[in-house]
Amino acid sequence: MSELKRTSLYESHLKAGGKIVEFAGWEMPIQYEGLVAEHEAVRKKVGIFDVSHMGEVSVKGKDAEKFVNNLVTNNVSLLNPNQIAYAMMCNENGGVVDDLLNYKYSEEHYFLVINASNVDKDFAWMQKQAEGFDVELVNLSDGMSEIAIQGPNAQALLQRLTDTDLNSIEFFYFKDGVKVCGYDTIVSRTGYTGEDGFEVYMSHEAAPVIWEAMLKEGQDLGVKPAGLGCRDTLRFEAGLPLYGNEFDDNISPLEAGVGFFVKLDTPFIGSDVLVKQKAEGLARKTVGLEMVDRGVPRHGYEVAVNGEVIGHIATGYTSPTLGRTIANALIDAKYSEMGTEVDVLIRGKAAKAKVVSKRFYTKQYKK
């Protein structure tokens, strides 16, 4: 087994009492004070996350935009400079290779942010697809740290550490060369929690300085360090998918319910399969479930009707914000109507649930 990686903030996590676990080949904090306390801090005040394990890829060259448009499901040619688009990369069968953020500097320069668990796989896929395009791909992942600042007080906190007016960064836009604690950074108004916030990309040297400054300067704002545990509950409540849960190589974006980010009027790898899926109607759909009986539906649990398995749980939790036990499930489309009763097989025992809207929590983004 290869040795686990550590981010530049590893010592800061130990200092803050972080409980370290293995995640995607990294030693990362799952929680500090506790999942619920950290979840509530992000919903009501502000939390900071180490997301330095994420991957970053630079795409430069005459065909950069043409290459990215062929690679991903969204139409990046519609972006303004310094705008960001969320999208998926699909394989030839319409399954999802990964989901990613596409930062547009110009038609000849893009910056792609990919999931930690898929960095090597994704970069190899991109290199393969780059054949025939006039582009240069550089995997920047090992040289960058990243901190996410999320919650109603996120702007107030980050503003204390920079002279750049953060009001000038709109939702899903970014600025490069922003000085934070004197260090050059890229700051984007993005996140993975359903709250207003920022993601800041920086050098490994800068990360511990900025992290400690946030904890010190944000005390009166209610700042808490937040681990991967509440990152998952927050994104799930807000309806944000996770690779390996809501979709994978065998689940399409349409089946996962994120068709809004799929632009079928511009061809991309796998688009012919998705066009056919849409025209013929989906055989399976991702739905929200709310438990009627006791029990927590975990990823991979089977969903059944009258003893017949019709799908599986993608993600499930007792929601810290809502106080209800809810889930996303990929099931046979004929059972996807609101109010339909199904059974979740929890350790082999059927527990009743009903189909509800996947919009569990209303996002609080700054528009």
Rank of each mutant, 00 (worst) to 15 (best):
K5D: 02
T7Q: 10
S8N: 08
L9Q: 09
L14C: 01
A16F: 14
K19I: 13
F23A: 14
A24K: 11
W26C: 03
W26Q: 07
I30R: 14
E33T: 12
L35I: 14
V36W: 03
V36C: 03
E38Q: 10
E40K: 14
A41R: 08
V42H: 09
R43N: 03
K44W: 02
V46C: 05
V46P: 01
V46E: 09
V46A: 03
V46R: 08
G47W: 11
G55M: 07
V57T: 07
V59S: 10
E65L: 06
K66L: 08
N70D: 11
V72K: 15
V72L: 10
V76H: 13
L78E: 15
P81V: 00
I84G: 04
I84K: 13
V96G: 09
V97H: 05
D98V: 03
L101T: 04
Y110G: 01
L112E: 09
V119T: 12
V119F: 04
K121Y: 15
K121L: 06
D122S: 05
K128Q: 11
A130C: 01
G132M: 02
I147R: 12
P152W: 00
A154S: 10
Q155Y: 01
Q155F: 00
L166K: 12
S168W: 02
F171C: 13
F171S: 13
F172V: 11
Y173M: 14
G177T: 04
Y183P: 00
Y183N: 04
T190P: 00
S203G: 01
E205M: 03
A207H: 11
A207C: 05
M214Y: 10
M214S: 05
K216N: 11
L221D: 06
V223D: 09
K224C: 03
P225G: 02
A226W: 11
R231K: 15
D232T: 07
D232R: 10
E237Y: 08
L242S: 15
L254I: 05
A256D: 10
G257N: 06
G259Q: 14
V262G: 05
L264K: 09
D265A: 13
P267Q: 06
I269Y: 11
I269V: 15
V273F: 08
K276A: 15
Q277A: 09
K278M: 08
A283Q: 11
R284Y: 01
K285L: 11
V287T: 12
L289Q: 12
G295I: 07
V296I: 15
H299Y: 13
E302P: 01
E302G: 10
V303I: 15
A304W: 10
N306I: 01
V309G: 05
G311L: 01
A314Y: 04
T315N: 15
G316M: 03
G316A: 11
Y317M: 12
S319K: 14
L322T: 06
L322C: 06
R324K: 15
N328S: 13
L330F: 06
D332F: 01
Y335A: 05
S336T: 06
M338Y: 15
G339Q: 04
E341V: 08
D343F: 08
L345K: 12
K349H: 09
A351Q: 15
K352T: 09
K352Y: 05
R359H: 15
Q364T: 07
K366I: 06
